[in-house]
Amino acid sequence: MKILNSTEFVIACVLVAAMVLIGLVNPAFWGFDNLFSLAKSNVVIGIMALGVLLVMISGGIDVSLPSFAVAALYIVVRAMVELNYDGVLLPFIAAALIGLVLGAFNALIIERFRMIPLIVTLGTASIVRGLLLGLMGASIVNINKMPKELIAFGKHDLVTVQAANGASYGLTAMVLVYLGLAVAMHLVLRYTMIGRSVYAYGTDAESARRAGFNTRRTIWFVYCTAGLLAGLAGMLHTSMIWQANPRDFQGLELDVIAAVVLGGASIFGGRGSVLGTLIGVFMLVMVKNSLILLKVDTTWQRVVVGMIIVTATAITARRDRRKLA
């Protein structure tokens, strides 16, 4: 059976097994509060992972998205506070545009100067974060100053469940935004020529050029879209936590990459799917969050994430080596 052999199926099986295991150790895992909070934690990292997925299919890697996200959210929120503006749609558009412009900066350097994406994005990440903190200061915009409509937007729930002790838990509606973007990304990757050009470019850049793809446009599309997604992710983050902190997302790029690799994308390019990435993100977030349920000290989190990256890459390295041979 084809489906049984697919990467997504294998990851999904691992995920289910892990869920069962965690549930056995601590049944609180299956509580609505835990599941809802898990879903919420998926949103921001998941949207960035969609961007990194796109970059990875094209054969690159991008560590700049979290700094782009934080720049977008902080600039927009600060501007809203200064201008006394309140609203939802316009700020989201502005943040997306900021992300897009920053992504275009990546594209420009990678496409024009033919430099390895890792090194370029390391550089742009530090430029953006440095300028943000240096020019705009490091102060946090807290809940009192946050635009009210933005907070209200972030508070939307899809369903609320009343627990036995009277507390109620909601499933944030932001999950819909995430899933909507995921479906859009899937459709673009599968049913548009620009989406297929990303796979073609990642498989063999030279052949893609010969086949008549406009490969420059492909690179611009990839990095601009990734930047745009980062901008949106940043804005969702700020409206869900009701504050804007320019120091957020430190080191998140590693988690995002880990999630995408876990989802079966190949760092050599040409392979990767939205479904796999969704599962990979869920798995990573779940393991990190469940360490508390499993009574593991939180200081171990990074060690566990590191282990996950190493294990996942060791397995995919075997797979890719087999394919190459």
Partner: peptide, 16 residues
């Protein structure tokens, strides 16, 4: 051959 090994026959044929 300048083909894309990761893609299917149908897609390789249709892309051009």
């Amino acid at each position: 051959f300048s083909l894309f090994g990761n893609l299917t026959v149908a897609e390789n044929l249709a892309l051009n």
